[in-house]
Amino acid sequence: MEPWRFLDSAEIDWWNISNCSLIFPNIFVDEEPVEDENHLRDDLEWLVMCQITTRSILTYYQNYVHKIPCRTSIRTGHRCLEEILNGHEVRCYQAFRLSRSVFMDFCHELAHKYGLRPTRGMSLYEEVGVFLVTCAHGVDNRLLQELFNHSGETISRHFHRVLKVVGKLADTIITPHPEYNEGKGYHKPQHERYMPFFKVSDFVLYSIYVLTF
C-alpha cells in the first residue's frame, strides 16, 4: 500500500483535533501531570500547525501530483466540430451564425492572410468555432469547456488568439468609407434609421462634461 493512501480515504478522519489524542497518545499524557497551561496551549498550537501543514500538502498533492482528469468525454471538440460541419446546413448556422461555406472561407482567410495557425491541441477550425460560439451566443467559459472538452485556460487562450487576429481585419475590411463624414458610403451620418438611438440631448452632454471634469 502506498504511504499516501490514507490521505485519499474519506473514511479516516485525520483532520479532527479531537482525534489527535488517538493518533499521538503521548502528547497529552506525560509521566508527570501537566501543570503549566502555557505548555498545553503550545501543544495545541503545534497540533493546529501540523493540521494546516498536512492539509496544504494534501491539497498540493491532489492538485499538482495526483491530478484527476476532468474533461474525459469521448466527444472531443474536434469531433463536435466535424459533426456540425458534416451535418445539416442549419446546424452550422445555428452554432456559428455562419453558413458552412462562409465559415470555411472565414477560417482560410484568417489562416492565409492574417497568420492564424492551429496548435498541437486544437485545430484551426476548432479555435475559430470557439470564438464564434462565444460571440454569437455570449456563452461563458464553463459552457465552452463542456462543449469543446478543453480546460478553461485552453479555451481562454485560443479565444484571445483568434480575437487578436480578427482585430487585424480593421486594417482591410472593417473600415469606414473614406468619405464617411461627408455622407458617402452605406452607413451615413445622421441616418434616419440609426440616429434616434444615438441622439443625445444637450443636458446629457453637459452632465457628461461636468462628471468628467
Rank of each mutant, 00 (worst) to 15 (best):
P178M: 03
P178N: 04
I27E: 03
T53H: 13
S56I: 15
N63M: 15
N181Q: 10
T154E: 11
V102W: 00
C92M: 01
E182A: 07
I74M: 11
S101A: 06
T175H: 07
E179F: 01
V65N: 05
V65S: 04
I52V: 15
R79T: 01
T59D: 15
T54R: 09
C80Q: 06
D105R: 02
D8K: 13
D105A: 04
N38I: 09
S99F: 11
G129K: 01
T76F: 00
M195R: 12
E11N: 09
S207H: 10
L85D: 00
S123W: 02
K164T: 08
S99A: 12
L124G: 03
E32G: 09
S101L: 06
A10R: 12
I208G: 10
L211E: 05
Y125G: 06
F103D: 00
S18K: 11
E146W: 06
S99T: 14
Y206P: 06
D30Y: 14
K168M: 05
P69L: 04
P176K: 06
Y64E: 15
E11C: 08
H150K: 09
K67L: 14
Y61E: 15
E82Q: 07
V128I: 05
H137T: 03
Y194D: 04
E45W: 07
L58Y: 11
E89I: 00
L7T: 07
A111K: 09
R142L: 08
G87W: 00
C20Q: 09
S73A: 12
W46S: 14
V204I: 11
L169T: 03
G167P: 01
K199Y: 07
D13W: 06
R117I: 13
Y209I: 11
F131I: 02
Y61N: 15
S207K: 12
I173R: 06
F159A: 00
L98K: 06
Q51S: 13
F213L: 08
H78C: 04
R120P: 04
G167M: 04
E45R: 08
I155R: 01
L44F: 10
N19M: 06
S18E: 13
Q62T: 10
P176A: 05
N181K: 10
H177W: 05
L144D: 01
R157V: 06
Y61L: 15
H158E: 13
L81S: 03
S151A: 12
R71V: 12
V90L: 11
E35T: 12
R41D: 11
Y61H: 15
G152M: 06
L169R: 08
A95N: 03
S99W: 10
L147Q: 03
E82G: 01
F203M: 08
E83D: 09
L147S: 03
K113N: 08
P196K: 03
C70F: 13
L205P: 05
V133P: 00
F197D: 06
